[in-house]
């Protein structure tokens, strides 16, 4: 049941409990219990809203930053990752296989703000060897949702 609940609410967390129960064919109390349990276990970490900020008047700049670091004895990458992710402007931090170590996704109000973070905060950390910053020019798809996809039903109104 957990998988079914998660698959559904991953795309639509606003559905009310009663409807969710009907749709999944289970009773409301068990859905509520499972949700509560998964929140407690941090399987469900929040109910966020997906926003295409580019359509608002709010300017935002997003950058993907490749970071190469020296892992620390006994700590691996965790310590340095923590020092980075504690900055509120950092949206995501991933440990990555391949040519670099950490992928940092950063959101700022302006290019300058982002560059300043990279040059002042990130590159100056002791274990950071190098960084490469890529600014996002346009978002096509995020979290499995095509941002500009017009939802038009092309089907005829009645078919056999």
């Amino acid at each position: 049941m957990r998988e079914k609940i998660l698959t559904f609410i991953e795309k639509n967390s606003r559905i009310d409990l009663k409807e969710l129960a009907i749709i999944l064919g289970v009773d409301e109390v068990s859905v509520a219990n499972e949700l509560a349990a998964m929140e407690k276990e941090r399987i469900i970490c929040g109910y966020h809203t997906m926003i295409d900020w580019s359509k608002t008047s709010d300017e935002k700049v997003t950058a993907l930053i490749e970071v190469r670091v020296t892992p620390q004895r006994g700590q691996g990458f965790d310590n340095i990752a923590e020092r980075i992710y504690n900055y509120p402007e950092v949206q995501s931090v991933y440990l990555i296989s391949g040519g670099f170590d950490l992928m940092v996704i950063l959101e700022g109000k302006t290019l300058r703000q982002v560059s300043q973070f990279v040059s002042d905060k990130l590159s100056t950390m002791d274990s950071v060897l190098s960084t490469a910053t890529h600014f996002i020019l346009k978002k096509y798809k995020e979290h499995g949702t095509i941002l500009d996809g017009p939802e038009k039903d092309e089907r005829m109104l009645v078919t056999p």
């Binding site: 039903d153 089907r155 005829m156 109104l157 009645v158 078919t159 056999p160």
Partner: peptide
């Protein structure tokens, strides 16, 4: 002629109708 055809012609003239009449996947 198919009875569904007849109904289709009626529905097509109704602007902004919402349909539950389709026999194909969405």
């Amino acid at each position: 002629p198919s009875g569904i055809r007849k109904f289709f012609d009626i529905v097509s003239e109704m602007k902004d109708a919402i349909s539950l009449g389709v026999g194909e996947p969405d």
